[in-house]
Write a protein that binds this DNA or RNA. Structure first.
Length: 638
RNA sequence: GCCGCUAUAGCUCAGCCGUGGUAGAGCAGCUGACUUGUAAUCAGCAGGUCCCGAGUUCGACUCUUGGUGGCGGCACCA
């Protein structure tokens, strides 16, 4: 006799060992049909899993996240089976679940084409119709190696051989197809209702760029056709919001062949850039930072001293002049240490917070560039805090508050924090690391927010916190960071005189809130689909006339608003008002002011919001007050 | 950097393979008419070294090849 407790709190008794599928069946035929897997005492298992003892059990269907994940994982197997039916020579490798879908990597003599993808999709549909049972089995490692070697699946053999020999290996078979897999999987290939293969791309075997390139096929799978459709629609929406596309449509910036990875900023884009920069300058001034500026070109020897040349010399642009080698600076920190090093510093000077809108150049690999998101020339809102070990925690806490306020001003309310701790290869004593990691933890706890731990992912010179914001598409965008550095100040000879008159090396905190202006603007454009909040909009309002009669009055309105510091455009062209409205709506101007004889006579403007809302006539004073209030609120929603 | 795809007018894209014979649309631009009330007024005109180099060919936007840029991934990201 064994007792099964179900999620609703009910209990069922079974006289003998029972499978998850049988439990589902005993609850109801509908559930039995929907069952994709089971959860037994918190562990995900196949529906064929047999319970020997009392347990808490839930039946996993496509209504659970776990169920969808099982579905996607099994869909990867389905695809691999289809590929091998069509291309028997293709070798299978790995096929995991990713966000919204799955992929599977294959080794094959030629690249797969889009036509291949649709053929594979068709074959997948056939296998679904065949409704093949999926069976789990366990093999000893040597048997498994022999089996896959016999099948010519050399990549699988390599995987199996890399698994410790005492671990039991599970396999899943559906029809003629068998794959090494931890599982669980759906009970049969008839369970798939909505999937699509989305793309094919190259990917290195085992993620190692020194090894062969495989062919990765990406797919997506959903519980039903409707959800698949919604997913594809979301992708379409994301494409519409692509900052490269919007940047072109709104005339914000461009790239061209002569300067790969370096933006040419147009007037409107540069206005956004400058608006953000002056906002950041003000924030940093208020927060105790001292703004500095350091050279673009610095003798290569400084990069050797700082240790960067050893690791990144390939990624640095260099310039030779008068037999001297210079590097165009790839980062600002060594220069900031030079500023710190001028004159004698006392413990009384600490913490010393230096900030620079530092333009950096890095020779990023050609394939890694992506619009404004990854460029070769970018400006960081960079800052370095020189402080003592004891000051780390309060400085990090201070930075947290600083950064949260800034993100809220830009309209981002959800922030994800991640603490990266000591890696294998590192400098500094364990004691120092422990102290720094504790300081960061305490500062993070003090925020009252959840944070994630990324063990071993810190820089070699110290632990760090990364701040990601969630955009309106639900994507996480890593922007801010604060990094403890025990290494660079000492290496570059930074010192201060301590209370006891001894010479000590300060700790340096590298920090940035936005990361780079380029990337942050890219994120903003996508988040707002180009319709930036008024405080950031390059043109905040457009005044337009109905006929030539009101042109002079429009100019007066424009001048009056400009004198109050607003960014105003005039559209006095001889065009119909509908045409002008359409054009400025497409250009995402947040406020449109229509002026005809009625307004000109009464000294007012007719006010229309970007979305089409008509606020009717108001005086120029009333409008500018409204606009001013909106600018002051920035992007804050709450 | 690696795999695949790709580059035609300011922009978005046809044409290109089968079938090699120096290009077409819409929007934007210019000119003219129209003076207009909340998402496209009408007519006319003009606009291209078909990314760059080499090859095949009587002839290359088209085929082959080498570059460069871009796109989708992978790898990288101080």
């Amino acid at each position: 006799m064994l007792t099964v407790s179900l999620p609703d709190g009910s209990r069922r008794e079974y006289p003998q060992p029972v499978s998850v599928a049988e439990i589902a069946e005993s609850i109801g035929p509908g559930l039995a049909k929907a069952a994709l897997a089971g959860k037994v005492d918190g562990q995900l298992v196949d529906t064929s899993h047999v319970l020997e003892h009392d347990a808490e059990v839930s039946i996993v269907t496509d209504r659970d996240d776990d169920g969808v994940e099982v579905l996607r994982h099994s869909c990867a197997h389905l695809m691999a089976q289809a590929v091998q039916r069509l291309f028997p020579e293709a070798q299978v490798t790995i096929g995991p679940v990713i966000d919204d879908g799955f992929y599977y990597d294959f080794s094959y003599s030629r690249p797969f084409t889009p036509e291949d993808l649709s053929a594979i999709e068709q074959t997948m549909a056939e296998i679904v119709k065949e409704d093949l049972g999926v069976e789990r089995s366990v093999l000893a490692r040597d048997e498994a190696v022999e089996l896959f070697r016999g099948m010519g699946e050399h990549y699988k053999v390599e995987i199996i051989e890399s698994i410790p020999s005492d671990e039991p290996l599970s396999f899943y078979r559906q029809g003629e197809f068998i794959d090494l897999c931890r599982g669980p999987h759906v009970p049969s290939t008839g369970k798939f209702k909505a999937f699509k293969l989305t793309s094919v791309a190259g990917a290195y075997w085992r993620g190692d760029s020194n090894r062969e390139m495989l062919q990765r096929i990406y797919g997506t799978a959903w519980p039903n056709a409707k959800e698949l459709r919604l997913h594809l629609k979301r992708l379409e929406e994301a494409e519409k919001r692509d900052h490269r596309k919007i940047g072109k449509q709104l005339g914000l910036f461009h790239f061209q062949e002569e300067a790969p990875g370096m933006a040419f900023w147009h007037p409107k884009g540069w206005t956004i850039y400058q608006t953000i920069q002056s906002y950041m300058k003000r924030k940093q001034d208020d927060n105790g930072y001292l703004e500095i500026n350091t050279p673009q070109l610095v003798d290569f020897s400084l990069w050797e001293k700082s240790g960067h040349a050893a690791k990144f010399s390939e990624e640095m642009f260099t310039v030779e002049s008068d037999n001297r080698q210079y590097a165009i600076k790839p980062m600002n920190c060594p220069c900031h240490v030079q500023v710190f090093n001028q004159g004698i510093k006392s413990y009384r000077d600490l913490p010393l917070r230096l900030a620079e809108f530092g333009s950096c150049h890095r020779y990023e690999p050609s394939g890694s560039m992506h619009g404004l998101m990854r460029v070769r020339n970018f400006v960081q809102d960079d800052g370095h805090i020189f402080c003592t070990e004891e000051q780390i925690q309060s400085e990090v806490a201070r930075f947290n508050e600083f950064l949260f306020g800034i993100y809220r001003d830009f309209g981002f309310d959800e922030i994800v924090l991640r603490l990266s701790t000591r890696p294998q290869k590192r400098v500094g004593s364990d004691e120092l690391w422990g102290q720094a990691e504790d300081a960061l933890k305490q500062a993070l706890d003090a925020t009252g927010l959840d944070w994630q731990l990324a063990p071993g992912e810190g820089a070699f010179y110290g632990p760090k916190v990364e701040y990601s914001l969630r955009d309106c598409m639900g994507r996480l965008q890593q922007c801010g960071t604060i990094q403890v550095d025990f290494f660079t100040p000492g290496r570059l000879g930074a010192q201060y005189v301590a209370e006891d008159n001894s010479r000590r090396t300060p700790v340096m905190l590298h920090r940035a809130a936005l990361g780079s202006f380029e990337r942050f603007i890219g994120v903003l454009i996508e988040h707002y689909a180009g319709a930036l909040p008024v405080w950031l909009a390059p043109v905040q309002a457009v005044v337009m006339n109905i006929t030539d009669n009101q042109a002079d009055y429009c100019r007066e309105v424009g001048d009056s608003l400009k004198s109050k510091g607003f960014r105003v455009g005039l559209d006095l062209r001889n065009e119909k008002i509908g045409f002008k409205i359409r054009e400025h709506t497409i250009q995402k101007a947040p406020w449109l002011l229509v002026v005809g004889d009625r307004e000109a006579q009464s000294g007012s403007v007719s006010v229309r919001k970007l979305g089409g809302e008509d606020l009717g006539k108001m005086t120029i004073e009333a409008f500018s007050e409204r606009l001013g209030g909106e600018v002051a609120r920035r992007g804050r929603t709450g």
